[in-house]
Design a protein around this nucleic acid. Sequence first.
RNA 1: GGCCCUGUUGUCUAGCGGUUAGGACGUUGGCCUCUCACGCCGAAAGCCCGGGUUCGAUUCCCGGCAGGGUCACCA
Length: 497
Amino acid sequence: MTEALHAVSTAQRPLRVRIAPSPTGDPHVGTAYIALFNYVFARKQGGTFILRIEDTDQERYTAGSEAAIFEALRWLGLRWDEGPDVGGPCGPYRQSERLAIYKEHVELLLARGGAYRCFCTRERLEKLHAEQTASKSSHLGYDGHCRDLSVADQTALLVAETPFVVRLRVPRDGVTRFVDHLRPEPIEFENRLVDDQVLQKSDGYPTYHLANVVDDHLMGITHVIRGEEWITSTPKHVLLYQAFGWEPPAWHHLGLLRNADKTKLSKRKNPVSIFHYRELGYMPETLLNFMANLGFSMGADVERFTVEQMIEAFEWSKVSVGGPVFDPAKLEAFNGADIRAMSIDALYDRLQERVLAPARIKALLAQAQERVHRLDDFIPYLSFFFGGSLDYAPVLDKIKAPAGKSNAEAAQLLDDYAQEIERDNQARSFTAPALEAFSRDFCQRHAVKPKELFMLLRLGVSGRTASPALFDTMALCGKDRCRTRLRDLSGLLRQRG
RNA sequence: GGCCCUGUUGUCUAGCGGUUAGGACGUUGGCCUCUCACGCCGAAAGCCCGGGUUCGAUUCCCGGCAGGGUCACCA
């Protein structure tokens, strides 16, 4: 049985893999991690590496984050062969441009009986969920209310323009089994525990599950290499392939990157933006090497290697699957070693690329010009625009919670501030005017005097009581540097109790 | 809670029935040295637990336990 299942894999089709990020927020290191393994595997096998943008959620979509994904992956050197920007034979590579395709496939499924229309209201579903939770029902999920509506009933509802979603008709019994090529045993799910997943939302957009399967098939994806978080929805995907009569890809679920406390790597507990590492001066090849070691082992006690060397040596048997803790200290050590290994000329060139990029330096000089008396003062004056965490010792006594607030509340205020910036479409871009508008509004909402919050922000970001205009300072420091420092400051406040 | 995945020092890992259980980060002692850093030498620290199978289990099997993931008209 096991043998037979393993043998099914992807016969003789040309090897094609993909990374399919969704454009929400900053590009995540987890995306880079998964991209790396897809990329390396494709290169090793002479296959094709595809970038597909999964932008089917209009609510969470954020402008500019697609471009940010391109930028981040390019910075890392993970070049894709097909994608929204470079095109390719299976385009478009942006799901929002493939809506007609999904519609068509939903119709196909409906016609075949593999899916059905569900007219249940959100209220009913919420009530259902509440009841299931309250009764401690062992399995939550749709109750199949609309599963067998008569044609007449459906027509009536359709004529009345009742909103509906389309759900996958999951078999009531039996099991769905698939092989994960990273694990020794096939993975099995009882069908009765698999929910009738929504495939098409009431706004006509596909959900991830539908779009992903349709695209993977249409784009000829032979190997799906993704995070372990997807294992539980894989039976739905397998069932979808079956409903369409398609051959599923070979599944590979990699362990999830973790915080120090072993939970799934999160923004709350760790810097997760690829840009954070770029801005703070980690080198792309070092970051890649560090991440490679999280799930891949070269063997022979070698852990410093290039992507080329990884490609050379790559085999799935060298990939481990326990969720690794992303340890910034080790990354730091790798990066330091790599800096030491460079020639002075190479180092100098590296610095020009970003840290000392002329445009950046000029922008900084513009801030320092009127505040400095000697040329030699520029560098010390601008020092806090560089580096990560600051030493707050010299200004410790100046760091105070706003009037009427405890230290803990002030810390919380800073955390909220950092968090809410991400949710603000303007402030997220981190320009001075947007930051100012956001910050003033923030003060209003949280009942703090701007003066007090702004001083706290200034101290956090610059480590000084005096600096160039706060919002220019923040914009020039960059989001990632500000975020770490504000996090540091909030930690410091919290520590005081 | 149901289901699923995972389980070697604090962390990332090597190991694939017999090893003084190897390497790296971190921690730590020392050497080098005007200081720091680097570099070098050394140390502490691990096979989740309990049953099997076996002459012998970290390794194979079973059962626990622990951690994680997932249970959306988000991906």
